[in-house]
Amino acid sequence: RPMNAFMVWARIHRPALAKANPAANNAEISVQLGLEWNKLSEEQKKPYYDEAQKIKE
């Protein structure tokens, strides 16, 4: 299954978030990633939607 825009973004940002929160488990990191993603504007998300579309094609 191809990655969606959030997954493209999260793949880039997960390592830094995990390093900054070494005690957090994957579920907690995923929740935090979701919160951070939701704070982004549509303009900030656009490159990730574009990349996800390329992956689908």
Rank of each mutant, 00 (worst) to 15 (best):
Q44T: 04
E42V: 13
I55H: 08
S30G: 09
E42S: 11
E36F: 08
N21F: 12
N26F: 15
E28V: 06
K39N: 08
I29F: 02
P2F: 14
P47A: 05
A10H: 02
P2H: 13
A52T: 03
G34W: 13
S41C: 03
I29H: 02
P15V: 13
P15R: 08
L40Y: 02
N21D: 05
L17E: 01
I29D: 01
K19T: 09
M3S: 09
A24H: 06
P15C: 07
D50T: 08
R11W: 11
L40T: 01
V8E: 04
E28R: 04
E28T: 08
K39G: 05
W9D: 00
I55P: 05
Y48R: 00
R11K: 14
A24I: 06
L35G: 03
E43C: 05
A24R: 05
Y48H: 02
L33T: 01
W37V: 00
W9V: 00
V31M: 13
E28A: 10
L35N: 08
A27Y: 14
G34V: 15
A18T: 13
A27W: 15
P22T: 03
K19P: 02
P47L: 05
P47V: 07
P2R: 08
Q44C: 05
A24N: 04
S41D: 09
P2Y: 13
R1Q: 13
E42L: 15
H13A: 03
E42F: 14
R14I: 05
A16G: 08
M7Y: 12
N26C: 08
A20F: 05
K54V: 09
V8Q: 03
I29A: 01
P2K: 11
A24G: 04
V31I: 14
L17W: 08
V31Q: 13
A5L: 01
A20Y: 03
P15S: 09
P15F: 07
N25L: 05
E57F: 07
K54C: 05
A10P: 00
M3P: 13
M3Q: 10
E36N: 09
A24D: 04
L33G: 00
E36W: 12
N26T: 12
N4P: 03
E42H: 12
K46T: 06
L33E: 01
K39F: 04
Q53F: 05
F6G: 00
I55Q: 10
K56S: 13
S30W: 15
L33P: 01
V8D: 02
K39P: 01
K45A: 02
A23M: 15
S41F: 02
W37F: 03
E43Q: 11
E51K: 10
L35R: 12
A18I: 15
L40H: 01
K56V: 09
L17D: 02
E36G: 04
V8R: 04
V31F: 14
K45T: 03
R14Y: 13
K45I: 02
Y48L: 00
D50Y: 09
K54M: 10
P47S: 05
L35D: 06
R14E: 06
V8L: 08
S30Q: 13
A23Q: 13
